[in-house]
């Protein structure tokens, strides 16, 4: 009945597995974070889902610029909105985690600043879209800005934290990489969780895009 029911159920199942297993497994005893390491299965997945969504929107923006198909614009903008949603979830989970480990909701960490500024860039994308009335122009201009914003995201989350002197996040500024700190059981939960969240993100994206198309069709009929 539903298109592609199986991959959707797989995504749900993987996340459900990661939620239950993430609480039940034994985690290695680490200083400062202790048991809060379990948040890794939720917090990091949000960023992965966000990054995938923004990457998808980059692909569709490039497609739009080369082909001028309105469908690609819908996909590009909806995946940005979806990415913002996951980004906000990532910020919230991260802030809660930070409160219990580093003692504050917000720290002056390169990774955090990068995340905040790239979220701002994508919120600016939403403002930009709402400020242009003509459809083709809106699609074109926002596609151009989207490519700019993605470049920013890459610089911010990929390049700058590695240049910075110190960071509270692993893998940056001389800390050891996350993957070295993860033992096998944690990986067995972490990777399925990431895959599951990415699948569900695509599902939400699909639903949003289909809804937009429906609304568009109805508007055309009303005209």
């Amino acid at each position: 009945m539903i298109k592609g029911l199986w991959w959707k159920l797989t995504g749900l199942g993987l996340i459900l597995y990661s939620i239950v297993a993430g609480q039940m497994i034994e985690v290695p005893e680490l200083p400062v974070i202790h048991q809060t390491i379990r948040n890794l299965f939720y917090h990091v997945c949000m960023w992965f889902a966000m990054f995938t969504m923004f990457g998808t929107s980059l692909v569709y923006s490039i497609k739009y610029l080369t082909g001028n198909k309105p469908g690609n614009d819908i996909m590009a903008s909806e995946s940005v909105y979806n990415g913002i949603f996951f980004g906000i979830l990532g910020l919230i989970t991260g802030m809660i985690w930070a409160k219990f480990t580093w003692g504050d909701f917000w720290t002056n960490d390169p990774q955090l600043n990068g995340a905040a500024v790239s979220m701002m860039a994508y919120l600016a994308y939403a403002v930009l879209r709402s400020s242009i009335d003509e459809k083709a122009m809106r699609a074109r201009v926002s596609a151009v800005y989207n490519i700019f914003a993605f470049m920013l995201l890459v610089i911010f989350l990929g390049v700058l934290p590695r240049l910075a002197d110190s960071s509270l996040h692993p893998g940056k500024g001389g800390n050891t990489s996350t993957m070295q700190g993860l033992d096998l059981t944690m990986r067995l939960v972490f990777y399925p969780a990431v895959i599951g969240w990415i699948i569900v993100a695509f599902w939400i994206l699909q639903i949003r895009a289909r809804k937009r198309r429906l609304v568009q069709n109805v508007n055309q009929i009303n005209k």
Binding site: M1, I2, K3, K8, L12, I15, L16, I19, V20, G22, Q23, M24, V200, W203, I204, I207, R210, K211, L214
Partner: peptide
């Protein structure tokens, strides 16, 4: 176990919600 159960139930609820929307849109 309690935390896992509560989170699992919330998530199952969200999953059902997504499924219902998908069906409606279809």
């Amino acid at each position: 176990l309690v935390v896992a159960m509560v989170m699992g139930i919330i998530f199952i609820g969200l999953g059902i919600y997504l499924y219902l929307i998908d069906r409606k849109i279809s």
